[in-house]
Simulated assay, not measured.
Amino acid sequence: MPERDEKCADCSSSGLSFAPNSGKSSAAKEPCSWFEIHYLVKEVARQAGAKKYDCILAIANGGIIPARLLAEELGIDDVKLVPVRKKKIIAQEMPALDKKKRYLIIDDIYDTGDTYRKVSKAVKGFSCDYAFCMTRRPTDAGICGRILGHDRWIVFPWERTQ
């Protein structure tokens, strides 16, 4: 059965082409363009649009730029940072959250689920939904703009490409 390439309607209609999903692991890198990020964020916003959020929480570092773009798409002025460094949440730098507010937490990619699990634990008891520009495979962790279906390293446009 041929692999399906998951992408949003805007990307499909724009003629934007993603690398084919082989489903096999590869050491190759796959570049992600600014154009693709904008369309993935639009797809996440489309899926999240029916719900009303008070604040976007950006998972550092990969979620910072998608959070700002998503905030613009959803008309949300409040963006806060979930401080993650060296795969650990810096608890003393966590923003103060309000149990009366609804939060949308975003990251660039859902890979192993490790960051997601740590962040979920840190915000337990608050009203939070999750969004990812990309996921490696289908997940019920949150909404996503694109399902990759492969293990190639994604090089986001804000990363160094040495």
Rank of each mutant, 00 (worst) to 15 (best):
K80M: 09
D107Y: 13
R85L: 09
E93F: 14
V84S: 04
L97V: 09
L104S: 04
T112F: 04
P95Q: 13
Y110T: 11
V79R: 06
R117K: 15
V84G: 01
T115H: 02
D108S: 15
I106W: 00
D108M: 15
G113K: 08
K100P: 00
L81A: 11
A67T: 05
V82A: 08
L69R: 02
K101D: 03
I89Y: 08
I109A: 06
R102E: 01
G75C: 07
D98G: 08
P83V: 12
A96R: 15
G113Y: 04
R117C: 13
V82C: 06
A67W: 02
L81S: 06
E93W: 12
A71T: 07
D114N: 13
K86M: 13
L70G: 00
Y103D: 01
Y103F: 07
L70C: 04
R117A: 15
R102G: 04
K118T: 07
A96G: 13
I76F: 08
V79F: 06
M94V: 10
D77H: 12
A71Y: 07
V119C: 05
V82E: 04
Q92P: 06
D114S: 12
L74G: 00
L81Q: 05
L97Q: 04
R117T: 14
I89K: 04
G113H: 06
L97G: 02
G75S: 10
L70Y: 06
I105C: 10
I105P: 00
D108E: 15
P95W: 13
K80V: 07
D78Y: 11
V84Q: 02
K80T: 11
L74Q: 01
T112P: 01
L70D: 00
D111C: 11
L69M: 07
A91P: 06
I106G: 01
G113N: 02
T115W: 03
K101S: 08
K100F: 05
K86E: 12
I76Q: 06
I105N: 01
V82Y: 02
L104V: 09
K118R: 14
D98R: 10
M94Y: 08
V119S: 01
G113P: 00
L69K: 02
V79H: 04
E73G: 05
E93Y: 13
E93D: 14
A71D: 02
K118V: 05
I89D: 03
V82G: 03
D111R: 13
L97S: 03
Q92T: 15
D107W: 12
I106S: 03
Y110G: 11
K87N: 10
D107E: 15
K86H: 14
T115C: 01
P95R: 14
D114R: 13
D98T: 11
K99W: 09
G75T: 08
A96P: 01
I106H: 00
K88M: 12
K118L: 13
R68Y: 10
K100I: 07
L81V: 13
I109E: 06
V82L: 11
Y110K: 10
K86V: 11
G75M: 08
E93I: 10
Y110S: 09
D78P: 05
I106P: 00
V84A: 05
D108C: 14
A71V: 09
